[in-house]
Design a binder for these strands. Structure first.
Lengths: 116, 116
DNA sequence: CACAAACATTGACAACCGTCGATGTTTGTC
DNA sequence: GACAAACATCGACGGTTGTCAATGTTTGTG
């Protein structure tokens, strides 16, 4: 029972100040690294980009599988990671699952990297 | 001989537009993911933070080993990754190696995550 | 109720990553 | 030239990660 999994939906801004401001604690670094890890994958970056560029700002899995060139389970896997990291929301309608960018979530991470 | 290692010092800004602007290509995502991967580790985040907060904005390995609680080879390993990703510079004086933040490197990454 | 479609979950496997101890390399000192 | 100090590199090991095929689950349709 790893204690790290008790907070899947982490809000980075609630934890950290900009990285260059002063030395981070081990815990702050842990939370921030988890969030960055969710972004540090080419498939997931393209997923965010595809969802953001899609009409109505939302997309279902079937819209994303083919342009990514990955299998459906793999796409679902990456989407789950992005949802748990707080970058996407999932809303299910009928048999489709629609994913949406969480407004400001990327900007929040950007804010932690920006100096001053 | 993996072709991916031919460009160790990557400049993300030369490759990509902000993530939400329009769909990224596979190559753009690959480069950006490599850069983010360098940041997505608690030890490396703390290293950047420690270097930035240090007097004279530079620090040697001996300054960093103890506050991190990691062995010297491990710290050297992480520093190398940060240098190759373009976040730190290394200048050797006598037997010491001094590391410095590359000005604007973090802001460049932040710019790619910021919308509009 | 049977069936199909859209998606999630599981299990397995190869590749990668973080860590350390041991060793190599360079530089200053006696 | 012998020695020590600071750091890099190497080799090995366990843990994590990305991927897929197979299977499970839910929802709409005939």
């Amino acid at each position: 029972m790893p204690v790290a999994e008790l907070l899947p939906l982490t809000d980075v801004t609630a934890c950290c100040t900009p990285i260059t401001l002063d030395a981070m604690t081990a815990e702050q670094a842990e939370v921030m690294a988890r969030t960055l890890k969710a972004l540090a994958d080419p498939a997931r970056l393209r997923l965010l980009s595809l969802v953001a560029a899609h009409d109505d700002d939302e997309a279902c899995v079937c819209d994303l599988t083919e342009p990514l060139g990955l299998s459906q389970p793999t796409v679902s896997h990456h989407l789950k990671i992005l949802v748990e990291a707080g970058f996407l929301t999932r809303s299910k309608r009928a048999t489709w699952a629609y994913y949406r960018i969480v407004p400001g979530s990327l900007d929040a991470v950007a804010g932690l990297l920006t100096s001053v």
